[in-house]
């Protein structure tokens, strides 16, 4: 879609503003995600706190996007790809807000972790999961910026891979729990972190599907 070609320039401006808000909301997520990844590797409590604090800004962005979308619907009554973009923006903002919630959950679990557990070789699986979700997030952001359905399509198979890895992680740490009673709280936190990243990955897929719908009108599966 081309948001800059309407006869009515305020319509172009409002669509542009909507897109910029989606993009900047994703930038906030990107920042929090990178912090979460770093906080996990270094067991950095301060970074965890910053993720939790910045969630408010993410939530506020959702409200801004919802209001802007409502305003555009009311004023311009968009149709075709414009309508798909405006309506999907509401859904995308909701998904991004939930990405922020999952990052907060991850941060809270990292804070509970004992530093020693991060030395265990199996923790590498969680780092892999972080990398996978990071890749999906990057594709999603690029797809929003460039209106590129194929870029969004790159994100789709990540969900299955994340699910498999998360399952594997759960099996490993459940097994470790049976052997090491004292480590149970740590292993539980690691399982919760893995699940949150897996859900993060699923939400990235949902956003990618919304972008594909905007650009191609193919409905979400």
């Amino acid at each position: 879609m081309n948001i800059n070609s309407h006869i009515l320039t305020p319509f172009n401006d409002d669509l542009k503003e909507l897109k910029e808000n989606l993009s900047s909301m994703l930038t906030l997520i990107e920042t929090s995600f990178n912090r979460a990844e770093e906080a996990f590797v270094n067991n950095d409590q301060a970074l965890c706190d910053s993720i939790i604090v910045s969630d408010e800004a993410i939530n506020n962005k959702e409200v801004v996007i919802d209001n802007l979308a409502m305003d555009i619907l009311l004023k311009y009554k968009p149709v075709a790809s414009d309508l798909r973009f405006v309506v999907s923006s509401i859904s995308i903002a909701k998904s991004i807000e939930r990405l922020g919630d999952h990052l907060c959950r991850i941060a809270k679990q990292i804070k509970k972790l004992d530093k020693s557990v991060l030395m265990a070789p199996d923790v590498e699986y969680i780092k892999d999961l972080f990398s996978l979700a990071k890749e999906q997030l990057a594709h999603t952001k690029e797809a929003i910026l460039t209106h590129d359905a194929s870029e969004a399509g790159e994100c789709l198979d990540g969900e299955e891979r994340a699910k498999e890895t998360s399952k594997q992680i759960s099996a490993i740490f459940v097994n470790l729990m049976s052997q090491d009673n004292e480590g149970i709280p740590n292993y539980l936190s690691l399982i919760f972190i893995a699940r949150s990243i897996q859900r993060f990955s699923k939400l990235c897929t949902n956003i990618a599907e919304d972008i594909i719908y905007i650009e191609t009108s193919k409905p979400n599966q």
Partner: peptide, 19 residues
């Protein structure tokens, strides 16, 4: 026609892009 027009000229017209 209004949600997924097949023709670009239709899309341009219904969405207010006709120059």
């Amino acid at each position: 026609l209004f949600s997924n027009p097949k023709n670009k000229r239709t899309e341009d017209y219904v969405s207010g892009r006709f120059g």
